[in-house]
């Protein structure tokens, strides 16, 4: 059974453009004002960053070939240390 307290992770690795961006923007629409969204992507989504900035979000990307973890949060509600340290399980 899914842990209700587990961070919200959106896996878009198997989607073709622009579906990953569509899914991320849809997810942000439903996110509470102090919420966080973890995205698992197969490429670093550079075009998304410009939109996030304009929408008032901040982000942090960690990644390597074929696997990038992007943590997105409202710019006014920065993440805690433990949220920054959390990694999406493989």
């Amino acid at each position: 059974m899914a842990d209700p307290l587990a961070p919200r992770v959106l896996d878009v690795r198997r989607l073709e453009p622009p579906e990953p961006m569509e899914r991320v923007l849809d997810a942000l629409t439903d996110m509470p004002e102090d919420g966080r969204l973890w995205v698992l992507h197969r490429r670093e989504p550079f075009p998304l960053y410009d939109l996030l900035r304009r929408l008032g979000y901040a982000w942090r990307t960690l990644g390597e070939e074929e696997r990038f973890e992007i943590l997105i949060w409202p710019a006014d509600f920065p993440p805690s240390r433990s949220e920054l340290d959390w990694r999406i399980p493989c």
Binding site: P17, P18, E19, M21, E22, L25, P47, D50, L51, R54, L55
Partner: peptide, 25 residues
């Protein structure tokens, strides 16, 4: 379709017209 969708997405953010629903690509 990709360029159309992408430009509209940016235009929506610039104009803040989130009441207009953008179609999928």
């Amino acid at each position: 379709p990709f360029l159309s969708w992408f430009h509209l997405q940016h235009r929506q953010v610039t104009t803040r017209r989130f009441d207009v629903r953008l179609p999928y690509m």
